[in-house]
C-alpha cells in the first residue's frame, strides 16, 4: 500500500511544484518586463559605457583608427601631465567654492520661502526660474554681466568708484566667478528639497519648543536643523557628485581659460576625447574622476550617514 500510495502521490507532487515553478517564473518574467525599459536603458546607456570607458582607459585609441593596447601607460602619463594636475586642483577648488555656499544659500532661501506670507508661491516660482532656464542662456547672460569693459556689474561698481574687475579674464577670479553664476542658477533646486523637508517637520515639535520657552535660534538649532538632516545629507551628496563633474558652465563661458585657470577634470576629459582624439587618455581621466567621486561619497556616508536617522 505504502509503495502504491507513494507512487501515485509522486506525480501529484511533481505536478504541483511544476505549476508553482511555472507561476513563479511567469510572475518573475512579468516583473522583469515591467522594469525592462529602465533596466535595458541603464545597461545600454550607463553600465555598458562605464565598463567600456574602463577598458578604453587601457587603450591607445584616436577614435578614427583601430585601437592598440596601452596597459597602464595612460595612467602613468596622467601623473606627469601638468594640465591634468591643474585640472584636478581646479576641480577641487570648484567644489570648495561651490558646494558649501550653494547649500547655505539654498537653506536660507528655503527658510525664507517657508514663511506664511501672501503670495509666497510667486516668490518660490521666481527663485525656481533659473533652474528651468537653459544653462546656455544663463551662462551667456552672465558672460555679458561679467564683461570687464561694458558689463553691468562693472558699470555698477564704477558708480561707487571701484575699478573694472576682470571677472572672467583674471586667472584668479574666473573660477569663482563661474561658481557664483552656478550658485545663482542652482539655488532654487536645493531650495525646493529643503522646503519639502521643512514642511514635513511636525508642528507639535515647535509648539513643544514654544512651551519650553525656546528662542527662534534655539528652535532652528534644536528642531529644524536636526530634522532637516536627511534632506541635507541628500543635498550634500548630490552637490558633491554634481560639482566634481562641472563642465557645461566652463565650456560655454571660458573654454577652460584664461590660461588653464578654469580647466576642470570634465573639461580636460572632453578636450582629450573630442578635440585631441585621445580616447584612451580620456578614459583614464574618467576613471580617476569616478574613483574620486566614489571615495568622497563613501567617506560622507561613513561619517554622516548614520547620524541622519531620526524616528518620530
Amino acid at each position: 500500500m505504502n509503495t502504491l500510495s507513494d507512487l501515485t502521490a509522486a506525480p501529484e507532487r511533481t505536478r504541483l511544484t511544476r505549476r508553482a515553478l511555472h507561476k513563479k517564473l511567469r510572475d518573475n518574467l512579468v516583473g522583469y518586463s515591467f522594469i525592462a525599459p529602465a533596466l535595458i536603458g541603464f545597461l545600454a546607456f550607463t553600465l555598458l559605457p562605464v565598463l567600456a570607458a574602463f577598458v578604453i582607459g587601457f587603450l591607445n585609441w584616436d577614435l578614427l583608427t583601430a585601437p592598440t593596447w596601452a596597459g597602464i601607460k595612460n595612467y602613468a602619463a596622467l601623473l606627469q601631465d601638468e594640465v591634468f594636475l591643474i585640472s584636478l586642483r581646479n576641480t577641487i577648488m570648484w567644489v570648495v567654492y561651490y558646494v558649501p555656499a550653494s547649500i547655505a544659500i539654498s537653506l536660507i532661501l528655503a527658510l525664507a520661502m517657508n514663511m506664511p506670507l501672501r503670495g509666497i508661491t510667486a516668490f518660490r516660482a521666481m527663485l525656481y526660474i533659473p533652474v528651468i532656464s537653459p544653462l546656455l542662456a544663463v551662462a551667456l547672460l552672465f558672460v555679458w554681466l561679467f564683461n570687464p569693459d561694458f558689463g553691468l556689474i562693472n558699470f555698477m561698481l564704477s558708480k561707487i568708484g571701484i575699478q573694472p574687475i576682470g571677472w572672467l579674464t583674471d586667472e584668479r577670479l574666473a573660477l569663482p566667478s563661474i561658481a557664483l553664476m552656478a550658485i545663482w542658477k542652482n539655488a532654487g533646486w536645493n531650495m525646493l528639497i529643503f522646503l519639502a523637508a521643512l514642511q514635513g517637520i511636525p508642528r507639535h515639535l515647535y509648539e513643544a519648543a514654544d512651551l519650553d520657552g525656546a528662542t527662534k535660534w534655539q528652535k532652528f538649532r534644536n528642531v529644524t536643523f536636526p530634522l532637516l538632516a536627511p534632506a541635507t545629507f541628500f543635498i550634500v551628496i548630490m552637490s558633491f557628485i554634481g560639482a566634481f563633474q562641472v563642465f557645461g558652465e566652463i565650456y560655454i563661458m571660458t573654454n577652460g581659460g584664461p590660461g588653464y585657470s578654469t580647466h576642470t577634470l570634465a573639461y580636460y576629459l572632453w578636450s582629450n576625447a573630442f578635440k585631441f582624439n585621445k580616447m584612451g587618455y580620456a578614459g583614464a581621466i574618467s576613471m580617476v574622476m569616478f574613483l574620486l567621486i566614489l571615495l568622497v561619497t563613501v567617506l560622507q556616508n561613513r561619517f554622516f550617514g548614520r547620524k541622519v536617522q531620526y524616528d518620530l
Binding site: D170, G256, G257, P258, G259, F276, N277, K278
Partner: peptide
C-alpha cells in the same frame, strides 16, 4: 593641430595677453 593650439598655445598666449 588641434592639440597644439588648444592645449599648448592658447592657454600660454591667453596668460600673456592678459
Amino acid at each position: 593641430f588641434s592639440e597644439l593650439i588648444n592645449k599648448y598655445v592658447q592657454p600660454e598666449l591667453d596668460s600673456a595677453f592678459n
